[in-house]
Computed example of a mutant assay.
Amino acid sequence: MNKVPMTAGGFQSLKEELRWRQQEERPRIIEAISEARSHGDLSENAEYHAAKEQQSLNEGRVNELEDLVARAEVIDVSKLTGEKVKFGATVVVVDEDSEEERTYQIVGDQEADVKSGRISISSPIARALIGKEVGESIEVNAPGGARGYEIVRVQFI
């Protein structure tokens, strides 16, 4: 059973989604199935089939969330220190071509959100950053070609 690294915030989000799916979404879907059943012939009842499909999708996600919560290895980023980039680090880099500064936090796969600067530990840029220190340069093979970055700051917040 492989552990899944995640931040405390990511773990809380998963637990909240699991609670919502089990305690709110599941009863709503059961009610929709019951309502559709009361309309008669199930073979041609689109509402019934749609509700059953929703139930299947919801239960699949519940199973996935239960698995992730059970295998979660919650890492308290505020207790991490050091000079090297590791899981949970917030890293400020400068694009060597455009001089544009970017900030990324390295998080678990489930909590990644590039728009808010949270990148997955398994992403190409995170893999290139892991183990490096301030002042070092990295090269990342991105879909648009290789990009060079210099690490400006590493912090754990």
Score class of each variant (00 low, 15 high):
residue 39 H to S: 03
residue 39 H to N: 03
residue 39 H to K: 07
residue 42 L to A: 06
residue 44 E to K: 12
residue 45 N to Q: 09
residue 45 N to V: 06
residue 45 N to T: 05
residue 47 E to H: 03
residue 47 E to V: 07
residue 47 E to N: 09
residue 51 A to N: 01
residue 52 K to V: 14
residue 52 K to I: 06
residue 52 K to G: 01
residue 53 E to Q: 14
residue 53 E to D: 11
residue 53 E to R: 14
residue 55 Q to L: 15
residue 55 Q to C: 00
residue 56 S to D: 12
residue 56 S to T: 15
residue 57 L to A: 13
residue 57 L to C: 09
residue 57 L to W: 12
residue 59 E to V: 01
residue 60 G to R: 07
residue 60 G to W: 05
residue 61 R to Q: 10
residue 61 R to V: 06
residue 63 N to L: 05
residue 63 N to E: 15
residue 65 L to E: 01
residue 68 L to G: 00
residue 69 V to E: 02
residue 69 V to T: 00
residue 70 A to N: 15
residue 71 R to D: 06
residue 71 R to T: 06
residue 72 A to M: 14
residue 72 A to H: 11
residue 72 A to N: 02
residue 73 E to I: 04
residue 73 E to C: 09
residue 74 V to G: 05
residue 74 V to R: 09
residue 76 D to T: 04
residue 78 S to E: 12
residue 80 L to I: 11
residue 82 G to W: 06
residue 82 G to Y: 12
residue 83 E to G: 13
residue 83 E to T: 07
residue 84 K to G: 03
residue 84 K to N: 14
residue 85 V to G: 01
residue 87 F to G: 00
residue 87 F to D: 00
residue 87 F to K: 09
residue 88 G to P: 13
residue 89 A to W: 03
residue 89 A to V: 07
residue 89 A to D: 04
residue 90 T to W: 02
residue 90 T to M: 08
residue 90 T to V: 13
residue 90 T to R: 12
residue 90 T to Q: 10
residue 92 V to L: 10
residue 92 V to P: 00
residue 94 V to T: 14
residue 95 D to A: 04
residue 96 E to V: 09
residue 97 D to M: 11
residue 97 D to S: 12
residue 98 S to A: 04
residue 98 S to T: 15
residue 100 E to V: 11
residue 100 E to Q: 11
residue 101 E to V: 14
residue 101 E to M: 12
residue 101 E to D: 11
residue 103 T to M: 11
residue 103 T to Y: 05
residue 104 Y to F: 15
residue 104 Y to T: 10
residue 104 Y to Q: 05
residue 104 Y to D: 05
residue 105 Q to T: 15
residue 106 I to T: 08
residue 108 G to C: 01
residue 110 Q to A: 08
residue 110 Q to W: 12
residue 111 E to K: 09
residue 113 D to W: 08
residue 114 V to Y: 08
residue 115 K to R: 05
residue 115 K to Q: 04
residue 116 S to I: 15
residue 116 S to M: 13
residue 116 S to K: 13
residue 118 R to N: 10
residue 118 R to P: 04
residue 120 S to N: 08
residue 120 S to P: 00
residue 123 S to V: 08
residue 123 S to T: 11
residue 123 S to C: 12
residue 123 S to M: 14
residue 125 I to Y: 05
residue 126 A to P: 03
residue 127 R to Q: 11
residue 128 A to I: 02
residue 129 L to M: 08
residue 129 L to N: 01
residue 129 L to K: 04
residue 132 K to A: 01
residue 134 V to D: 01
residue 137 S to N: 14
residue 137 S to K: 15
residue 138 I to S: 02
residue 138 I to N: 07
residue 138 I to G: 01
residue 139 E to L: 06
residue 139 E to W: 14
residue 140 V to T: 08
residue 141 N to L: 14
residue 142 A to P: 07
residue 142 A to N: 11
residue 142 A to W: 11
residue 142 A to K: 13
residue 144 G to N: 13
residue 144 G to D: 15
residue 145 G to C: 03
residue 146 A to F: 07
residue 147 R to S: 06
residue 148 G to N: 13
residue 148 G to Q: 10
residue 151 I to D: 04
residue 152 V to G: 01
residue 153 R to W: 10
residue 153 R to D: 15
residue 153 R to Q: 15
residue 154 V to W: 10
residue 154 V to T: 07
residue 156 F to N: 03
residue 157 I to C: 02
